[in-house]
Amino acid sequence: MTAVPRPARPSRAVEAQEGVKDLIVRRGLVAGDPLPTESELMEELQVSRNSVREALKALQAVGIVDIRHGFGMFVGRMSLSGLVDELAFHSRITLQNGMNHLVHLIEIREILESGLVERLIELGREVDLKAVADVIARMEAEAQAGMVSPETDRLFHDLLYRPLGNPLVSQLLGAFWDVYHQLRDRLGEPDEPPGDVVKRHRDIYTAVLAGDRDAAVAAVHAHFEGVRNRVARIHG
């Protein structure tokens, strides 16, 4: 009878990682709360100092632990920086190989925003979008000067969905934006006239303000059509 191989035992560092995460959960710690010292973790988890340090380094990389030299260790605040770096790196590779991973990321963001505008409309007419109107006015001024800045474009999307009260929305959209921004050297300058950029954003705002679900979703798709065209130029 053929012996069934036993699954490999996790390394002590991996066990230490799980131990630290379990400790955070058991103690009900939240972002910003202090963590035990290295020595205390060694004693509680029954692992070596090297295993603890390796575990903490790995947890720091994904934002679970925040190590502040001279101050101590704390529960980290959620960050998608690791995801951004990985997505940007793989997008850059696929661009070089004639494929376009970035197109898929844009498609995901388009689907996400199409759903978000519907949720926004469900909140009703009492939603305060004055800050969004102010950003559109800023866009118009920038367009007259020659170009809508990426910062203003990003701010529009951030403020538009803020009434939903979901902090993950801002972080996810920001992650997609950061990937796109890291690849700006490959994408070149936008080929849309600044006035068209303003119009696409204004159309989204106007439809949401009017509570017109179909028009809002259509405006989101029209906005991303310009983004897709810019990416398509790379392999055109």
Results as ranks from 00 to 15, higher is better:
residue 220 V to N: 03
residue 20 V to C: 06
residue 19 G to T: 09
residue 192 E to I: 03
residue 117 V to A: 03
residue 186 R to W: 09
residue 22 D to N: 12
residue 136 I to N: 07
residue 67 I to M: 14
residue 232 A to I: 05
residue 113 E to F: 00
residue 202 R to H: 06
residue 63 G to P: 03
residue 52 V to A: 07
residue 117 V to M: 04
residue 22 D to S: 15
residue 104 H to E: 02
residue 29 L to P: 05
residue 196 D to K: 13
residue 33 D to S: 15
residue 67 I to T: 12
residue 161 Y to W: 08
residue 153 D to K: 06
residue 54 E to V: 13
residue 218 A to S: 10
residue 147 M to V: 12
residue 124 G to R: 05
residue 167 P to D: 07
residue 2 T to F: 12
residue 181 H to V: 09
residue 92 R to N: 15
residue 179 V to M: 00
residue 192 E to Y: 04
residue 53 R to E: 14
residue 208 V to R: 03
residue 58 A to W: 09
residue 232 A to T: 08
residue 71 F to P: 01
residue 91 S to C: 13
residue 70 G to H: 14
residue 57 K to G: 12
residue 38 E to V: 15
residue 45 L to C: 08
residue 81 S to G: 06
residue 197 V to P: 02
residue 194 P to G: 04
residue 226 G to E: 03
residue 201 H to F: 02
residue 126 E to F: 09
residue 21 K to Y: 07
residue 109 R to K: 10
residue 88 A to E: 04
residue 160 L to F: 05
residue 27 R to N: 14
residue 110 E to M: 05
residue 33 D to R: 10
residue 53 R to P: 06
residue 80 L to W: 03
residue 231 V to Y: 00
residue 104 H to R: 02
residue 151 E to A: 14
residue 173 L to S: 03
residue 222 A to E: 09
residue 49 R to N: 11
residue 47 V to N: 07
residue 154 R to D: 07
residue 106 I to S: 01
residue 109 R to E: 00
residue 8 A to K: 11
residue 143 A to Y: 08
residue 212 D to G: 09
residue 84 V to Y: 00
residue 26 R to Y: 10
residue 213 R to W: 06
residue 95 L to H: 02
residue 162 R to D: 11
residue 45 L to Y: 04
residue 205 Y to C: 02
residue 128 D to N: 15
residue 147 M to D: 11
residue 46 Q to C: 12
residue 194 P to K: 03
residue 75 V to C: 14
residue 38 E to N: 14
